[in-house]
Amino acid sequence: MKLYDYILSPSCYKVRLMAALTGVKLDLRPVDFHPGLEHRSPELLALNPAGSIPILEEGDLILTESSAILVYLAAQAAPEWLAGTKPEEAARVQQWLSFSGRLTANLGGARLHEMLLRPGDIGALQAQGIAALRELEAGLVEQNLRGERFLAADRPTVADIACFPYVALAPDGGVSLDPYPAIRLWSRALRSLDGFIEMPGIHRLHELKAEPTVEESKA
């Protein structure tokens, strides 16, 4: 399975993270998104005329939407990451997968503007990002009151992976995460999962490792 990947892209990171959590091996093909704009090169446009990454290629199959790629990985390697048979759970997974597209537009747009100087109405992007974070916070509060720690169930699903990266990287776009305690706890639960990997801007939870004994050198 070949992933056209950019190390700083939260959408590409969704796929790398999902693969790491479910033990899928990916063949990474780095794309020079910045500064090279390679995602708009003829080779990549031939795979994805929309000019976006990630792109997943396996034989004849080409997938270009990160949510679809997450579903594909989970269906192959870890079906427990998909919605179960309960109607509300299935619906909630869809609900948050759709919602994740808004995060890409608002928090992702703010981040590209503030970090890589891409054009955009920064005030509007940040305001929409804050509105989305409030929705997510309220959704997580309700889930906790139902006794469920994640967006669609008491276990993580593709919906959590779809929403996590742009949320965790909101500060890159000048949007603070300080006002959202439920998001903080949810983010921590995801970052504590076995097999979790980081991307630049999301630091390691150093507390998951015991304090090492450091010997002073005799030099």
Binding site: Y6, I7, L8, P30, V31, D32, H34, P35, G36, E38, M115, D172, P200, G201, H203
Partner: peptide
Amino acid sequence: TDLIHFQQTIFLQDR
């Protein structure tokens, strides 16, 4: 591209 991404990784961790 790998050389660029290695350095971008490092700098974005600092950011």
